[in-house]
């Protein structure tokens, strides 16, 4: 039965359910409660995170929702350390762009412990972080940096595309025993979707086939899934049935579902909001080119923004982010391709 809630509330609900279920789950981050909990004279739970995602947790779970100084290296590292010592911390790195000031604790520490310590470390840390363009936040608050995390062995990287996906994937992230980077698109927090009330975990490395089609495979990530769906409607009106595959996680990556789909459709368009060079889109393109070359009936198209920083002006930002029309055009390029 349908229960429509927002992407924001779905994430909040996942945190609430897991904190209720498992007392080792803690939440920390800048302004995660905000207000009196961190010494301000105002309300106790004033902000609940900069965009209100953790609102209400502070009152429900005393002592387990921690405000932090603006000190990402320290608290992300503390989350990693606490994970080695029996807690399941969920640290909020407010904007993914801020990885620049704490990346060492993620990729040299958390990501390496398991391997570097001979398989003896367990580091069940989750780092929730906002990514993506669309809020006119410009170059230092709008990037799509999940490819950088995907590149690092030892990290798992999640890119949920809907409220349902966000809740189930975050629950899995919290229960998972490896370090997980959970990338939330900041322009999706108010997107509504059908989400069951209870707890459920969506396993990592299992792509979701969002739409069935036999003419072209569109692999889309995060917010680009809805862009691909919009494009698919227009394509269907023109007689082209697109199959949309949402990988859900970029690491692990469900190459099997992607390859199966391309083997059937013979055409691949990848839609990725990250910068084009060394992107997940290009990675998927390369994997398909290597492993399903014989099935391809036209050149793979990768739809990404240009290789520029994210611009500020709304006119420029709207040009920057891939649109449904860009996807339609890419599909037509491959569909019309003649040797």
């Amino acid at each position: 039965m349908a229960r429509m809630i927002s992407y924001r509330d779905a994430i909040n609900e996942a945190l609430t359910l897991e904190m209720e279920r498992d007392e080792t789950v803690i939440v920390m981050g800048e302004d995660n409660a905000g207000g009196a909990s961190a010494g301000s004279p105002g309300e106790e739970d004033a902000w609940g995170g900069v965009l209100g995602v953790t609102k209400g947790l502070y009152g429900k779970f005393p002592g387990r929702v921690l405000d932090t100084p603006i000190s990402e290296s320290a608290f992300v590292g503390a989350a990693v350390g606490a994970a080695t010592a029996g807690l399941r911390p969920v640290a909020e790195l407010m904007f993914i762009d801020f990885m620049g000031v704490c990346f060492d604790q993620i990729f040299n520490q958390a990501a390496k412990f398991r391997y570097m310590f001979g398989g003896k470390a367990v580091t069940p840390v989750v780092i929730r972080t906002m990514y993506g363009a669309g809020l006119r936040a410009a170059a230092q608050h709008s990037q799509v940096l999940y490819p950088l995390f995907t590149h690092i062995p030892g990290l798992k990287v999640v890119v949920p595309s809907s409220p349902y996906e966000a809740k189930g994937l975050l629950i899995q992230a919290i229960r998972d025993n490896d370090p997980v980077i959970f990338c939330e698109h900041k322009a999706m927090y108010d997107v509504q979707g059908d989400v069951p009330e209870g707890a459920y975990a969506i396993p990592f490395g299992e792509a979701n086939v969002v739409r069935d089609g036999d003419d072209v495979t569109i692999v889309a990530l995060g917010r680009m899934v809805s862009v691909a769906e919009e494009a698919a409607k227009e394509l269907a009106a023109n007689g082209i049935e697109a199959e949309i595959v949402d990988p859900r996680t970029t690491s692990p990556l469900d190459t099997e579902t992607i390859l199966e789909s391309v083997e059937r459709t013979g055409r691949l368009v990848v839609v990725d909001e990250s910068s084009p060079r060394c992107s997940v889109g290009r990675d998927i393109s390369a994997i398909v080119a290597e492993q399903s070359f014989g099935a391809l009936r036209g050149p793979i198209q990768v739809v990404t923004p240009p290789h520029t920083p994210v611009p500020f002006s709304d006119v420029l930002e709207d040009l920057y982010v891939p649109s449904a029309q860009d996807v339609v055009n890419a599909v037509k390029t491959v569909a019309d391709w003649k040797r």
Binding site: L66, A74, G77, A78, V80, G81, A82, A83, L87, Q105
Partner: peptide
Amino acid sequence: PLICGTALA
């Protein structure tokens, strides 16, 4: 930073 985490735990 790591020992802040173990101390917190």
